[in-house]
Amino acid sequence: MNVLYETPGPRARLRNNVVTLLVVTAVLGAGYAIGTRLQAKGQWDSALWKPFLDVQVWTGLLLPGLLGTLTATVVSAVLALTFGVALGVGRMSARRWIRVPVGAVVEFCRAIPLLIMIFLVQAGSFALLGRSFSAFTSVVIGLTLYNGSVLAEIFRAGVRSVPRGQSEAAYAIGLRTSQVMRHVLLPQAVTAMMPAIVGQLVVLLKDTALGWIVAYEDLLNAGIRLIPATFSNLIPAAMVIAVIYIALNIGLGALAVRLDRRNPAPDPRIPGRAKALSPARIDSRGYAIGPVT
């Protein structure tokens, strides 16, 4: 963003240095204040942190929890992508009796908070079937419904970004509607929307943490319940799992950036090529097309 300001001259450099000093002092000061208060509460005691040097704590508690988080993420991601394509295609159907109900499902699932959805799946399964779904199933169903409907809109926006000429050409050479969708529109839509799709998967990964509320055994559960039950170190354990979550999400985010870069910039000489959409696009209902929180 160096368009916003000049290359600093001597006075600006001096001012920058002063501000830098202030910022560094403020950050260090805040860190020191928090650090000493944690110290006063004994949160830096080595006894509370030592468990994280123990291989068994990782193999026995943290990694199984992480595996729980990743399993829920992968299963939900696969189901949500499938569900999302189905809903996205359904919403673009030429038949009104498909388009309208699918649209209603998408709008409904996007308007309801995920946690409410998970509570409903658990309590509703008991009311309907006389037994509750397992925490895993409830979380996966909730994540699939919510993220599936968000992904449906992403796919739809992607298909719309493919210039008309492409589908017209496909029809002209005699392809059927389903073939046009499969061979021409969806592949380009997926490429164009790849950053948004991966971004939504980051959201999904973070949202698996809601599973903890309904007793799913994920990374959060290992950090907040299992480890403190043995070592009484809730705050240190929460810090450690926060670092793991951040690292995981930064990794996935970096993947999104790489995919974005691989995506060729629109070539002005080829007017008919779909271009990647920025995640900040918005649909007519005010929802973002692409990941938001």
Partner: peptide, 28 residues
């Protein structure tokens, strides 16, 4: 977007940490 590198770094750190932590954990 400020001209001061330290401010930019502090802002980036803030965003990176908060955007990548599950909200459940932030609230806990």
């Amino acid at each position: 977007v400020s001209p001061v590198p330290a401010l930019r770094a502090a802002g980036t750190l803030y965003v990176t940490v908060l955007r990548n932590t599950p909200l459940t954990l932030v609230l806990l």
